[in-house]
């Protein structure tokens, strides 16, 4: 879009918005390396607080739990979401109902899905723990994987599928040797996105993890910690968590030149 709008005004707007977006997190990152741990006095660069994190067993076990949840739910969601995307795209008719069901996990407020799952699991008398968090995370993860893969499928040349069949391949072989390899960047991009979402997800985990201390995930741990104020350890932990998300997302974006979902 070419507009006659004043370039200087545009530059001011962009600078202000990016400052608003990035100053808070930059301050956080900077403080995490502050020797004194105080927000007001810089006493020197140090990785001391990162070291302390490693000795906090609450944090390390929560991190391990989060890793388990994220990895397992991502794998499941990637498989289900990819198949779903392929299925939806090769279907000729587009059903409104189907679209709604697929879209719903991305727009239902977290709190609603969270209490719905909590009610569901307790009604069935399921003992809650990491496994119920995994089951729940797959719900929204598969929707996001599906949307990333579908975006790529829109530009997919379906005639290569027919070409593969024409050259003698069965449907399974075509899927394995042609569709999946061509789609792989998008599938991995979707998986990375799902991984980040799962690592960061708090509300649903909070409601579906049950009461046990051994099923606390990292966001739950962070929530518990930040309710009681600012500590240098949280700064370090927050920086780490953010770094993981940003790394995974940048990678996802690279792989999937189409951009992030919603774009």
């Amino acid at each position: 879009m070419a507009t006659p709008a004043a370039p200087r005004l545009m530059l001011m707007i962009l600078s202000a918005v990016f400052a608003f977006l990035y100053i808070p997190i930059s301050v956080l990152v900077a403080l995490s390396f502050n020797e004194s741990g105080l927000p007001t006095a810089w006493t020197g660069f140090s990785t001391r607080w990162y070291g302390e994190l490693m000795h906090n067993s609450d944090i390390t076990s929560a991190a391990l739990n989060t890793l388990i949840v994220a990895v397992v739910s991502t794998l499941l969601a990637t498989l289900l979401g990819t198949l779903l995307a392929i299925g939806v795209e090769i279907r000729r008719r587009k059903g409104r109902f189907l679209e709604t069901i697929i879209f719903a996990p991305m727009i239902i407020p977290d709190i609603v899905l969270a209490i719905a799952l909590l009610s569901f699991f307790s009604l069935l008398d399921v003992t809650m723990g990491l496994h119920t968090v995994i089951l729940s995370h797959v719900v929204f993860n598969l929707a996001f994987v599906c949307s990333v893969v579908r975006a790529r499928l829109k530009t997919f040349d379906w005639s290569i599928v027919e070409a593969s069949t024409d050259l003698g391949a069965s449907t399974a072989t075509t899927l394995r040797r042609v569709v999946v390899p061509v789609m792989l960047p998008a599938i991995v991009a979707g998986a990375l996105l799902a991984f980040t979402l799962s690592v960061d997800e708090f509300i649903i985990a909070f409601f579906t993890a049950g009461a046990g201390r051994d099923s606390i995930t990292l966001p739950m741990q962070i929530f518990a910690m930040i309710r009681f104020g600012v500590t240098p350890e949280i700064n370090a932990l927050a920086t780490l968590v953010m770094a993981v998300s940003i790394l995974a997302l940048t990678l996802s974006q690279r792989l999937n030149r189409g951009g992030l979902p919603g774009q």
């Binding site: 918005v17 990016f18 977006l21 990035y22 808070p24 997190i25 301050v27 956080l28 403080l31 105080l38 927000p39 007001t40 996105l193 980040t196 979402l197 690592v199 960061d200 708090f202 966001p219 962070i222 929530f223 930040i226 104020g229 600012v230 949280i234 700064n235 927050a238 968590v241 953010m242 998300s245 940003i246 997302l249 940048t250 974006q253 951009g259 992030l260 774009q263």
Partner: peptide, 28 residues
């Protein structure tokens, strides 16, 4: 666009916490 959206995909709690750091009584 990528940099405008990037914070959206990082942890919600962390982003909220960043404001606690800025706004609290001993904050920046």
């Amino acid at each position: 666009l990528f940099f405008a959206v990037l914070p959206f995909w990082s942890n919600y709690l962390v982003r909220t916490y960043a404001w606690i750091v800025l706004l609290n009584r001993e904050g920046l």
